[in-house]
Design a binder for these strands. Structure first.
Lengths: 96, 96
DNA sequence: TTGATAGGCAAGTGACGACTTGCGTATGGT
DNA sequence: ACCATACGCAAGTCGTCACTTGCCTATCAA
């Protein structure tokens, strides 16, 4: 649902997670935890981030593949590409 | 702030308001009220919409100009154009 | 099997957001 | 002056969201 995409993007921590994934795809939950703490100074529990990932998954912004005891998370930018053009009907090529 | 833009877009009613303004710019509060009720069947008080407009204004998605006792609201799509490209680093023009 | 790692589920708390209600202010018409 | 229109402010309610805590499951290594 498009609704879920906007809600998913509303939280700054989730946007940070997307930042992390666009930089390195296929990270596990613990990797994302570690990098959010060290790089951005976020103090957040593992479950907090896990729940954020669940929200991102339900918005189809993140897809996960399970491999043994690891779960890798991949970014999916496809839902992002059309949500904004909805209001950008103004022709960007018009040279008036 | 970019933060405000995402928060502003998180609410479906506010997105409807943007839909209204992209269709006809420069509407007053009462016009927006009427059209949201009649076209989308939303039952919402005037203040509800007024508060939504305030949120949209603080996100610079809507700009208002006062004229007598009327206040006209104009859509400003400029904040929308760069918020998503943040995660779209994948070259869209690459013909590999 | 034991123990450590990677992750999930569920309940509870605290705060923020959406919405309403009531009253107040300014502008325009007559 | 009067009244109606167009809008603003402030408090209060109610639900949802972000986050934590505690416990449980599954996979791998020794």
């Amino acid at each position: 649902m498009e609704e879920d995409v906007f809600k998913a993007l509303a939280d700054p921590t989730r946007r940070r997670i997307l930042d992390e994934l666009v930089e390195r795809d296929g990270q596990t939950l613990f990797e994302i935890c570690a990098r959010l703490v060290t790089k951005h100074g976020l103090e957040l529990s593992r479950q907090g981030i896990s729940q954020h990932l669940a929200v991102l998954e339900s918005a189809d912004l993140v897809r996960s593949r399970r491999q043994g005891r690891y779960k890798f998370h991949d970014l999916n930018t496809e839902p992002l590409e059309h949500i904004v053009t909805r209001w950008l009907k103004r022709d960007t090529g018009g040279t008036s």
